[in-house]
Every structure is written in structure tokens, then in C-alpha cells.
């Protein structure tokens, strides 16, 4: 049967342009910009990003230059604005350079897990039935471990190093993101517009691409951004335990570790990397909450 769709209108005539409503993305952005908390978080993250990118320009001193005579200077020492660490290295410079590794360790595993876990969850959610059960029950096995324990166990098994820490953190986040992706996709798959698309003869891949993805990517992304702070803290924890970043590279978690012996001598100094970790994770969480709020409205 070779029938063609007959066009009742004259396609040659130029299309009158209809009034366009603002799209979903533009609406979300507009509401996000109007949320002061989210904007504060975004500002903090922006400052951290500038710190990370322009670190060589911003650092007042060489972050690797140790000095036995200037160990553990307090905050505010002339020449050392934020003091010096246990090897006499400039704290401010190390904190600025540390933003690179800390942000990298916070964002990369979440991005990787967003891609992999999101794909697994959407596939399982759209397929449903036995495939869904097989995939999700496998995921549940990983999900059953506390995330800190799993990260340490995997890192311990894989060995020290940034690459191995990234892999173990990614594996920790994949089940969490996959579960969210699966539940959102299952919900969307049951809507009538997916049935209508199936009724028009579209393939599963086309339906997922055109109709499902746009409706599930937002919630999955919001959930993922809320994991960035967890990832940073876990990465810091791994570094603290000597499993992630190795000395002398500056990373906030590692700095917290090496300075812990100085906590009775210079408590404020020892807490500084923790303050940066705290501020960064709060900033990501606030931005993620703002994003969620901006997306919830129709």
C-alpha cells in the first residue's frame, strides 16, 4: 500500500510566522535568575571557576615552595595572607590552585555518572518489563552499599591515584542517577503522548529522542547537580585517606588531612580547606535547589 499524505494547503506559499511562546528552557532560566539564593550559589561557583582557571595569575606565591623557617604561620602574617602550612608553603596559593583538583574531582564523576547512569535508567525505564527488572535489580546491588564505603572499597581495590578515584566515584553515583532516571522515565512512558507517538508508528528510539528525553533530562540533571557536593566531599575523603590525590598536589581534602596534626597549634589555619569545601558544596546545593524550584512550575 503506497499512499502519500495529501497536503490540503498550498505548501509553496510562504508560511506566516505564528507567535512563538517562550520555551521551557527560557522560562526556567528566567525564574532561576530571579532567585537570589540560586544566584548567590552561582556567584560563588563562578568565583571558584575563575580561581581554578586563572590560578597561575592569582597565586601570590609558589604553592610548592616549602620553607622550614616559615612553618604554620598564622592567618594574616605579612607576606602570607592566609598563613603557611606544615611545610611552610603559602596557604592562599595552595587553596587557589586546589580549586582546580577539588572542582575537577567534584564535577567529573557526576558528569560521567549523569551520562552513563542516565542512559541506563532511561533505557530500563522505557523498556519496562523483564529488562527493567534485570537492570534495576543489578543496580540495586550497588545501591545497597553506603556510598562512602563503596567509594573507599573501590578506590582501595583499584589503588591510589586521581584516575582510580574518578572511576570509583563514578561507580558510586551511577546507581543513584540510574534509579532517578528510571523512575522519571517510567512515569513519562505511561503518559498518553508517548502512546500517541507509538500510535503514529514512530520507533522506540525516535520516541525516546523526541518525546522522552526532553521531559526527563531536567529532573535527572537537577538530581545530578545535587550530587556534586557529595562527590567533592567523598573525593576529599578519599584524598584524606591517601587514596585520591597524592601529595604534593594541592587538593582541599588532602590539605585538610596533612594539616590535621596542626589542629592544636593553628586551629583556624587547619580549618581553612574545610571552609572551602563547605562553601563550594553549599553553593552547588543552593544552585541545584534553585534549578529544581525553577523547573517544577509548568
Amino acid at each position: 500500500m503506497t499512499t502519500t499524505i495529501t497536503t490540503t494547503g498550498d505548501t509553496a506559499k510562504p508560511l506566516a510566522t505564528p507567535l512563538r511562546s517562550r520555551g521551557h528552557g527560557a522560562n526556567v532560566l528566567r525564574r532561576l535568575v530571579r532567585n537570589p539564593q540560586a544566584m548567590l550559589g552561582a556567584t560563588v561557583i563562578l568565583i571558584l571557576l575563575i580561581m581554578a582557571v586563572a590560578a597561575p595569575l592569582l597565586m601570590p606565591a609558589d604553592p610548592f615552595a616549602a620553607s622550614m623557617f616559615n612553618r604554620l604561620k598564622p592567618i594574616g602574617t605579612p607576606g602570607y595572607l592566609l598563613g603557611t602550612d606544615e611545610l611552610g608553603r603559602d596557604m592562599l596559593s595552595r587553596l587557589i590552585l586546589g580549586a582546580r583538583l577539588s572542582l575537577f574531582m567534584g564535577v567529573t564523576p557526576v558528569l560521567l555518572a549523569f551520562g552513563i547512569g542516565g542512559a541506563i535508567g532511561i533505557m530500563a525505564g522505557y523498556a519496562g518489563g523483564v529488562l527493567n527488572a534485570l537492570v534495576m535489580r543489578t543496580i540495586d546491588v550497588l545501591y545497597a552499599f553506603p556510598s562512602v564505603l563503596l567509594a573507599i572499597a573501590l578506590s582501595g581495590a583499584l589503588g591510589t591515584g586521581i584516575g582510580n578515584a574518578l572511576v570509583s566515584l563514578t561507580v558510586v553515583f551511577i546507581p543513584q542517577i540510574a534509579r532517578i532516571a528510571e523512575s522519571v522515565t517510567t512515569q513519562v512512558r505511561r503518559s498518553d503522548f508517548v502512546d500517541a507517538a507509538r500510535a503514529s508508528g514512530a520507533s522506540a528510539l525516535t520516541i525516546v529522542r523526541v518525546h522522552v528525553l526532553g521531559n526527563v533530562i531536567g529532573p535527572i540533571f537537577v538530581f545530578s547537580t545535587s550530587l556534586i557536593s557529595v562527590s567533592m566531599i567523598l573525593a576529599s575523603g578519599l584524598s584524606f585517606l591517601g587514596l585520591g590525590v597524592t601529595p604534593p598536589n594541592p587538593e582541599w581534602g588532602l590539605m585538610l588531612n596533612t594539616l590535621r596534626t596542626a589542629i592544636y597549634v593553628q586551629p583556624w589555619l587547619a580549618a581553612l580547606p574545610g571552609v572551602f569545601i563547605f562553601a563550594t558544596s553549599i553553593a552547588f546545593n543552593v544552585l541545584s535547589d534553585g534549578l529544581r524550584a525553577a523547573m517544577e512550575i509548568k
Binding site: I5, P18, R20, S21, H24, S191, D192, F193, D195, A196, A197, S200, G201, A202, T206, V210, H211, G214, N215, K298
Partner: peptide
């Protein structure tokens, strides 16, 4: 359900045109 049967992220002309593009 007229609401659930339209993709909330698509303009209505895109929703109406989708089936034809599939074919």
C-alpha cells in the same frame, strides 16, 4: 486526557507535525 496526551515540552504545531515526519 487532553493534557497528558500532548508533550508539554513541544509546541502544538510540532506535536501535530510529529507523526508525518515519522513517515
Amino acid at each position: 486526557d487532553s493534557f497528558s496526551s500532548l508533550n508539554p515540552r513541544m509546541t502544538i504545531e510540532d506535536s501535530v507535525a510529529f507523526g508525518a515526519t515519522v513517515h
